[in-house]
Design a protein around this nucleic acid. Structure first.
Lengths: 233, 233
DNA sequence: TAGTGGTCTAGACCACGGG
DNA sequence: CCGTGGTCTAGACCACTAA
């Protein structure tokens, strides 16, 4: 356990791995601050700092006098507002089905080139998925990854993308930005969502970085506004 | 400087007041951690904790090797996503005009009663304002306060409500929740926003608490979707 | 009462920025 | 070089929870 990255970050990453690997299950208590302190031979302050990082990522929760626990419904892989759609919906007791519509290599837009810091001529992996809640099509999600993630094509993408990234790539979406605006259904979107063309929709765009602070993906979600409300904090 | 509230919170509140009172101006350097430590007779850790609170509120910014500075454009009175509309828009170089449409006492809904923990029979102060960006009506904002803020009626409400709360009441909006969804223009809304009835709009609802963790206000903003994009982080 | 997280201290050394 | 914030330690006491 030595590197140029701060001790508390190393410890945080260590715990993050263990939590995501399922070493501790939902709602389970992790060792106390004193125990972690002697386990890893670091001071209690360092342990506290590491834990505070994971708390801010919503991976852990503290309870004064009781202990520190793995966040119960494993929603929120990442900080404020960057819930995975899957977990977000599941936590409301709804049935979620995802169908992969189309996977292809595409030429990036200028905007995408900048975000991914792409060299000229490089393409992106584009994944289009349709999501149903209680059997109603509610969301068309288009995600773009660099070709480093080409092997995603062979995975089962009909669940949470973030779960696949976590389990198969050991990648954790951490930070990013999000914009929300209105749009109107195109012909294709109308057909997929089973609504009239021109119906107002919510358009949510995310730019997400991973736990190594590298660009991970861009995604665009088009959602039926009559069925969806976006909640923050 | 003694109470049951933690030292670092007392110090944070102290600094918050001084910053908002203009003791330090935009972009100005505040005393170093060592100086604050000896000024207030607390340890450097306590100073750091206090500062970290204000950094998370976007009131301060740190620069390694240089110092700690008051956030330059005094946008963001509050944490993630709770920008004041005024500052948010101004920071984009647009002209913002606000017109107060209607102020009245109203009977609270059940939802409002719960949020404000209102006794039976108590009313709320309702403030309706219309906001223009570059002379286009773009947002109808309805805010509710307890009658403790009745004197708001005598203030100039054609600017930032948060600025009035800060300067005249010494109240700082700190935390809260926000939901974003779609809605369609009612007759009144259509007239005010100069759009056809039934046009799709964004509806943003906020529930905000002040720096004493007391319910401060609820507000509902109805925004023209063709002119507005909501950005997070 | 024992064990947990919450606060606070005093002091050390490192890493960055600017003269 | 100096002064800044960043990391880290060791140890103290308090506040909360549960048996």
């Amino acid at each position: 356990m030595k590197a140029s990255t701060p001790l508390y970050n190393q410890l945080a990453e260590q715990l993050r791995q263990e939590i995501c690997a399922g070493k501790f299950s939902q709602g389970e208590k992790i060792p106390s601050e004193f125990e972690l302190s002697s386990l890893y031979n670091v001071s209690r302050s360092t342990v506290r700092k590491a834990i505070s990082v994971l708390v801010s990522e919503n991976l852990l929760e503290k309870a004064h006098g009781k202990g520190t626990f793995v966040s119960s419904p494993k929603i929120n892989q990442n900080s404020s507002g960057f819930l995975s759609f899957t977990e977000n919906v599941k936590s409301m007791g709804k049935t979620l089905i995802t169908k992969t519509i189309h996977i292809a290599h595409v030429v990036p837009t200028d905007h995408q080139k900048r975000f991914f810091k792409l060299d000229e001529g490089k393409e992106l992996l584009q994944i289009e998925r349709l999501r149903y809640i209680d059997n109603n099509p509610i969301c068309i999600e288009t995600s773009w990854f660099t070709t480093a993630y080409d092997s995603l094509q062979k995975k089962n993408l009909n669940g949470s993308l973030y779960a696949v990234l976590r389990n198969d790539y050991n990648i954790h979406p951490l930070t990013g930005s999000k914009t929300i605006e209105l749009c109107y259904a195109s012909l294709d979107e109308a057909a997929l969502l089973d609504i009239p063309r021109g119906t107002a929709l919510m358009l949510i765009e995310d730019q997400v970085y991973d736990n190594y602070e590298k660009p991970l993906h861009i995604s665009k979600q088009v959602l039926r506004g009559d069925k969806f409300r976006y909640a923050l904090k």
